[in-house]
């Protein structure tokens, strides 16, 4: 089933991207080609296969519950696009 423009538009909102109309057309065609290609995996029977999420399958890696000095606030906020010396500032979160 080919990808539709509407689907791609919906995904762009989920991904918090915005595509101009001509970008949307190109993206739809390109994604459709890629998705068409990756769909060849469907021909493999994988019912009895355990998924492999990690390249090296280790377990139980922990750190001790020890407090380490936090970073200086000024240093943390130095890279913020907008801050008031105490907080990060973002457009109003209300209504979202």
């Amino acid at each position: 089933m080919p990808l539709t423009r509407e689907q791609v538009e919906k995904v762009s909102l989920l991904a918090r991207l915005r595509l101009a109309p001509e970008e949307l057309a190109t993206m739809t065609a390109q994604l459709d080609a890629i998705v068409g290609y990756v769909e060849q995996l469907a021909e493999l029977d994988t019912t009895a296969v355990e998924p492999m999420a990690h390249a090296v399958e280790q377990t139980n890696v922990f750190r001790p519950d020890e407090v380490r000095a936090s970073f200086d606030r000024a240093e943390m906020l130095a890279g913020a696009p907008k801050a008031d010396g105490q907080f990060y500032l973002v457009p109003a979160v209300l209504g979202d």
Binding site: R63, E66, R68, A69, S70, F71, R73, M76
Partner: peptide, 17 residues
């Protein structure tokens, strides 16, 4: 991470990368 969980610290003083 190793940042403290103590309540009531001034904003953004218990953070790290």
């Amino acid at each position: 991470c190793g940042c403290s969980t103590k309540f009531g610290a001034p904003p953004n003083t218990q953070t790290c990368p």
